[in-house]
Amino acid sequence: MTVSLANLLAILTMAAATYGIRLAGLFIAGHIPQSGRARVALDALPAAVLTAVVAPMALATGPAETLAAAITILAAFRLPILAVVAAGVLSVVLLRLLLG
């Protein structure tokens, strides 16, 4: 149970970079107009970011993952999140078995 100086420095640098980004969002927000195009863009942001995060897995991995992603989205319109995650994981396991 030790902490090496080099590892500590790396962790602190990562922490500073990450919190700096989180704070930067707060400061930028004060300068974004609350109506018009900037508002439309910000309103679209949550769905756009979440989709972008999963896109390589959903679209650029294989047919099993792409199909499972489609099933997950359909399930998400009807089921609570935990059931959606279960449906997604189950379908990817089955589809990987079926499609290799």
Binding site: L50, T51, M57, E65, F77, I81, A87, G88, V89, V93
Partner: peptide, 17 residues
């Protein structure tokens, strides 16, 4: 299939919007 759990969760959260 655990590697897909985050994908499924983020998709579910995105559909929430």
């Amino acid at each position: 299939g655990f590697d897909f759990a985050f994908t499924a969760m983020f998709l579910a959260l995105a559909v929430g919007f």
